[in-house]
Write a protein that binds this DNA or RNA. Sequence first.
DNA 1: TTGAAGAGGGCGCTTACGTCA
DNA 2: GTTGACGTAAGCGCCCTCTTC
Length: 290
Amino acid sequence: MMVQKEDLGLSLSLNFRHNIPNPQHLTLISSSPSASNPFKPSWNDAFASSDRNSDTCRGETRSFLRGIDVNRLPSAVDMEEEAGVSSPNSTVSSVSGKRSEREPTGEEHDMNRACSRGVSDEEDGETSRKKLRLSKDQSAILEESFKEHNTLNPKQKLALAKQLGLLPRQVEVWFQNRRARTKLKQTEVDCEVLKRCCENLTEENRRLQKEVQELRALKLSPQFYMQMTPPTTLTMCPSCERVAVPSSAVDAGTRHHPMGQAQSHSRALGMGPWGSAASIPQRGFDGFHH
DNA sequence: TTGAAGAGGGCGCTTACGTCA
DNA sequence: GTTGACGTAAGCGCCCTCTTC
């Protein structure tokens, strides 16, 4: 289904109420409308006050939905509509996520059987689980709804189920699976970013190790120290990130600073903050200052 | 005010089915 | 026609939050 795949790329930054490993977790792509408004309360409140969102979507899609859905169950829809949301014996609870509550009634079981496209009653045994395939239009509408809000309250669920000619349970399952797919996609993206970050850090570590080796070589060869041009990696000013003039390691420290902040450029000498244990292994510099 | 019980919803994991190469 | 990979609808158990008593 192309719509879903495309939308996966657009909805990668959705936040979930649960299972957020880190509040500052990576959020890379946020072009989805749901990304800008990922939190449930505002959406639910908006829906509770009026069914504007659903009505808008419904108005655009209801017309062409009629008669196109191979799985459509008008009788089921009417039954759902008649079920009161607040009633403890309502269909909402009977089709909600819990297994004990999902035990289908006789009529609901018949609906589920009827939803099994192309499966005859003879083939559909009591223990077999026949899956229906949502139509492209149904998936598209669900995607549109998901873009607006990635969770549904019972009212929304019923409205969407009615609109699509599906059972509320089917809408609920679809949203659950859709959230799972979005999270999986986001996890993959985060993993890629972390991998690149790790590679960068590895490269940085390699560079610093090399720098340490160079400094150690300088330490072990003081007779060459004064004649040597400092390694280019050692002449970067840590404060202004300008490369010092390599004419002299000593001069490099003060050449381009009007205030003569020699301590900022003492790195080539193995002194100062960069030359201390702050960023370079201490054992490499023990005795170097003394 | 506090705590137990139940309902409802979400998520992770898994299974089973449909589709396609 | 068969098969394996893949996508996805759906089942199940657990956890959390909220409400009620």
